[in-house]
Amino acid sequence: METRQIEQFPQSNAIQRAQKYGVDITLLMENLKLTPTERLRKAQRVLESVLAFRAEVKSFQMTREAKQKHDAN
């Protein structure tokens, strides 16, 4: 489905270059279906998810370090 969507567009140099660079063109195509406000709401959700994940990782690391210290004593 996604591959067929991409193939509908002529493979311009810019698209090919972006794909080689690791850009997921399907993400861009999905974003272009949204309104600008919806794109920013999505950006906000992604940001919140990443920060929540980072906080979880930090909390996990702190708990593990505290446990290691406790076990060492």
């Binding site: 810019a14 972006a18 794909q19 850009v23 861009l28 195509m29 272009l32």
Partner: peptide, 14 residues
């Protein structure tokens, strides 16, 4: 740049 230039192409084609 690669992503922005790809967006420019996609937008123009759309």
């Amino acid at each position: 740049l690669p992503e922005l230039e790809a967006l420019l192409v996609l937008r123009n084609q759309k």
